[in-house]
Design a protein around this nucleic acid. Structure first.
Lengths: 177, 177
DNA sequence: CTCCCTGCAAATTTTTTGCAGAAAC
DNA sequence: GTTTCTGCAAAAAATTTGCAGGGAG
């Protein structure tokens, strides 16, 4: 595995957790049920690991965390992680978020309200934000094109507030006197 | 190479080509120049191949087209194609467009106006559309968050008009009489 | 002339798969 | 009991890299 450029920037928790009646695990069990599939220990371990926080993650991170022996839930093989991530995506529990340069990462698609992302070109930080208007505009535009919108994926690229702020001056003119 | 699920659906040409003063090749030459890099025959061949039409494409497609002997421009090695695609992305000539399930594909990011995509969940077709309002809403939302927007990437998922239309009835009731 | 670039082949990285035993239902 | 899983190891797919010779500026 690679430990390349970190994919660890947290998805800033501007958004409060949604009220969800069933846990991600239950939700997954339901999905599997309708397809004659089973909720195994491995699958449950993976879902718990993924939904333990609201960070973004990629396949490799989950593989390395679950592949080595662990305190609680048992370890899970690489193949199973891949197989389960695909299922979780179909189940609508997670989805991919593309990041301009870097590779793609997953994010939770259950338990949190619909939101979009700001991606800073300087520090690569990914910030979630929520705006009602965007959806309604899209809803209308879609209708105009005879398209039945189910959802959307939006990334706004640019420079975040922190990176835009000029670096702190070391010496001010006054110091020179 | 893989000939998996086609990635050939055309990017419907709803959008007219922009007036561009310099060709993609020239644009690339400029970019390379500012970095002490060179516009080689291979790089030119690749750019021409890519900008010959306005279809979306992935690395593999370009590799297979340019890797075998060709009428005009000479062949280019796999490694060079990968290396050049990366440069073209940095140069802002192409960019990645994520497609829900399938893999990512590239699209032109030069010579065509800013636009977004509808992606049909049924037929996977990718349709480009253009809407002024979206940008202005994003501009405002960004400002509210202290974010300096440079651009955005948006995909609207759902069902396209064609797929939404019910299949043609074979036998109408009258036929039964 | 001097670097930058290319092709090649090998190395890496990432994801998928066949199969035998294990485990849900 | 069946049928669906899992882990393993190997295979396949996708991308990157070192290096020696070739070419752009």
């Amino acid at each position: 595995m690679t430990v390349g450029p970190a994919v660890n920037e947290s998805a800033t928790n501007e958004l409060a957790r949604h009220e969800v009646t069933v846990s991600p695990v239950e939700k997954f069990r339901e999905f599997l049920g309708t397809r004659g599939k089973r909720l195994t220990q491995e699958r449950e371990t993976i879902v718990r690991e993924i939904f333990a926080d609201h960070e973004h993650f990629d396949s490799d991170q989950i593989v390395s965390r679950l592949t080595q022996p662990r305190r609680d839930g048992g370890r899970v093989s690489r193949a199973t992680v891949y197989r389960t991530l695909r299922e979780l995506e179909k189940a609508g529990l997670i989805r991919k978020v593309a990041r301009s340069n870097d590779r793609e990462v997953y994010e939770h698609d259950y338990g949190y309200p619909q939101h979009d992302h700001f991606i800073c070109e300087k520090c690569s930080q990914l910030v979630e934000f929520r705006n009602e208007e965007i959806s309604s505009v899209l809803e209308r535009v879609s209708a105009e094109h005879g398209f039945r919108m189910k959802g959307h994926r939006l990334e706004v690229h640019g420079i975040c507030d922190a990176c835009a702020r000029p670096p702190v001056r070391r010496h001010r003119k006054l110091d020179m006197i």
